[in-house]
Write a protein that binds this DNA or RNA. Structure first.
Length: 224
DNA sequence: TCATTAAGCGTTG
DNA sequence: CAACGCTTAATGA
């Protein structure tokens, strides 16, 4: 996944658009590059765009007054997100941080609303995506309450490879064990320990700052 | 008692 | 230089 055009080609909602509509979307959408650690947008900021991850990895997170931070989701290449706040015309509810160098697409709010008013397949896509996210977040609460750290790490990892939310993704991800810990709600050491377990189970391959998924279904259902 | 975590630190890619 | 792996001490179930 490299360019905006490649990402648009992989986005299911664009396929049923008329060539003229496609061109309008393409012309209105802008691309920006972000360095690792930089903010794509901040909590409480006005949101004037729907956001797409063309390349790289971002996280949705927030920081409490105490300094503690929570990561709510990791968003990998191929995904569009942030429609919730655009739809509700509210300010961003979370920070969006690039976890490594990332290329991000911004579709202006006006274009987003125009698609909403004119394209049935766009609306269908949004329903599907919102439903998938709902399932993912409900799953997170369930796993957080019921599962041990090893299994939580497995599910958090599997969630990053959801084929509905992240179409056309490769089976590997460049993410630090610390960030995976924030996603799974556990410490860096515990993630390291869990990854060894998952590696022994033949579910993943672990390299420096890189995790390769060998068995996605196995990860999803991992429960020792 | 046992698992987990933050903090520190040396090693590694 | 960031990520990793290991040790230690504190914590709490």
């Amino acid at each position: 996944m490299r360019s905006l055009d490649e990402m648009l080609a992989l986005s299911p909602w664009i396929r049923d658009l008329e060539p003229g509509q496609m061109a309008r979307v393409r012309a209105a959408t802008v691309t920006r590059e972000f360095e690792a650690g930089s903010y794509v947008c901040r909590k409480d900021q006005r949101c004037d765009a729907w956001i797409g991850v063309i390349d790289g990895l971002v996280k949705l997170s927030c920081i409490a007054r105490s300094g503690k931070s929570v990561t709510l989701a990791g968003i990998t290449a191929g995904s569009w997100f942030g429609e919730g706040s655009v739809l509700k015309r509210e300010r961003r509810k979370y920070d969006v941080v690039a976890l490594r160098g990332s290329r991000i697409a911004f579709m202006p709010e006006a274009t987003f609303r125009w698609l909403l008013d004119t394209s049935l397949s766009f609306n269908r896509f949004l329903i599907l995506q919102l439903n998938e996210r709902l399932g993912q977040f409900i799953g997170m609460v369930e796993h957080d309450r019921l599962l041990e750290p090893d299994a939580r790490v497995a599910r958090a990892l599997a969630a990053l490879f959801n084929p509905v939310l992240y179409p056309g993704s490769e089976p590997r991800i460049q993410i630090s064990q610390e960030e995976l810990g924030y996603l799974a709600g556990t410490s860096r050491q515990r993630v390291n320990q869990a990854l060894h377990v998952l590696k022994k189970a033949g579910l993943v391959k672990v390299d420096y700052s890189l995790i390769t998924v060998l068995d996605l279904d196995g990860l999803r259902s991992f429960d020792p």
